[in-house]
Design a protein around this nucleic acid. Structure first.
Lengths: 218, 218
DNA sequence: TACACAGTTAAGTGAGGAATGAAGTGTTTG
DNA sequence: CAAACACTTCATTCCTCACTTAACTGTGTA
């Protein structure tokens, strides 16, 4: 038990591997080369490190042609890394205004950052979500957005839970519902993912809709 | 941001320091010598490591005479370490029955393990806690136990929240209320802390009272 | 006062493991 | 088919940083 803990700690402890985990917090799968660039090291080296992480079952791989996509092997891993990131003190001063990454970003597979928290606040304020459960009114609302609550509930993963944001230090929605909401927003082109970053950019279409649905000025 | 993450990861990554963090998960403060014994290393070495952890503000120290007591410098640190421990797969098979540490233990400052989860279940089943909030009935119940709800609510820290147990993989109560409950149980000698371990032992007095209050046979 | 104990500081050593260079496999594309 | 690309494997190098030995400060106790 303790030895496994030490093993995990040692794996995450290396600077290159720490960077890998940091980048993967996005929730997306990354190729070996992308990770090599992000960690500023050689392909051979990243290959060695990725192999160790896969061996230890912290990451898993999927081969697609000549590419290999790496991602966290379980939610627990992502949450553990998120927990480590949580230690970092919030340094949002006037001199250091919100970067896109703290402003609007993904947390593994759902929306986080200031925007994630604001959307969550709005859902609660509109009584769409009450006590972190979808209300009667909420069910109707999500149906209007084209999200099938019952289908999402049937997934093995958690349907709706609270997740603490490491930059905002405030809870935002997570779980299959939050993922579905983010997917919908990506699909409708309200927001777009950025390459090599957890940051999310909001399109002008997104701005209008975020205001319309959440009274959110961005 | 990323560099601070790497720094933290590197600090926890060393086997000796990982052991320190693991031992400190108990929530108690430990002396340098105790930690040296736990990590199976020399006093000089533990001193060097502890110094690094304090410098990085992961731990804090308190001098008492010729002793120095070390503990996590914030809750966030404890939760991060707890998150890492969460990755470890549960290995409770028939051959490997519940050890005291998974059975009844402290999670930083509140009761966890099988007993922590069972108490939480009982509180929910008795409708003392509803939706992780203290009900009207609950307020009366806690008052009977000699716990002042309003005073606890006024503390700066979280009053009542859900905490995922790494051995049981189920939620149990945390926050100032949970801490107060554990303190009360220690005070009334229902349970006792053990030296150098997160395990908690249940006294015979405790067994009677746990059955009486929570219908819990231990 | 002396001695045991808790912890620290400083200099020197050594090993583990990350990074590099060179050569390989398998995949896609012109 | 050849060439570029994505990634791996292996042997070698190199360097950091944990640990040791030794000497020291400060606190409690016989």
């Amino acid at each position: 038990m303790e030895s496994r803990f030490k093993e995990i700690a040692a794996l995450i402890g290396d600077p290159t591997r720490a960077t890998i985990m940091w980048v993967l917090l996005d929730g997306k799968a990354f190729t070996a080369t992308e990770l090599a660039i992000a960690a500023d090291t050689s392909p051979q080296n990243i290959s060695m490190h990725l192999n160790k992480l896969v061996q230890a079952e912290l990451l898993c791989v999927e081969s697609q042609g000549r590419h290999k996509y790496y991602k966290f092997s379980s939610k627990d891993i992502a949450y553990a890394i998120e927990g480590l990131a949580n230690i970092i003190p919030p340094v949002t001063t006037k001199k250091n205004p919100d970067s896109p990454v703290t402003y609007c970003r993904t947390c593994y597979d759902h929306l986080a950052g200031k925007v994630g928290v604001m959307i969550t606040d709005s859902l609660i304020q509109q009584k769409i979500i009450v006590d972190f459960e979808v209300s009667k009114k909420g069910e109707k609302w999500f149906a209007e957005q084209g999200l099938d609550i019952n289908e999402l509930k049937q997934q093995r993963r958690s349907f709706l839970r609270s997740c603490l944001d490491w930059s905002e230090r405030r809870p935002h929605i997570a779980g299959s519902l939050a993922t579905a909401l983010l997917d919908k927003m990506l699909e409708e082109d309200w927001v777009r993912r950025t390459k090599n970053s957890r940051a999310i950019v909001i399109t002008s279409k997104g701005q209008k809709n975020l205001y319309h649905h959440f009274k959110l000025t961005v």
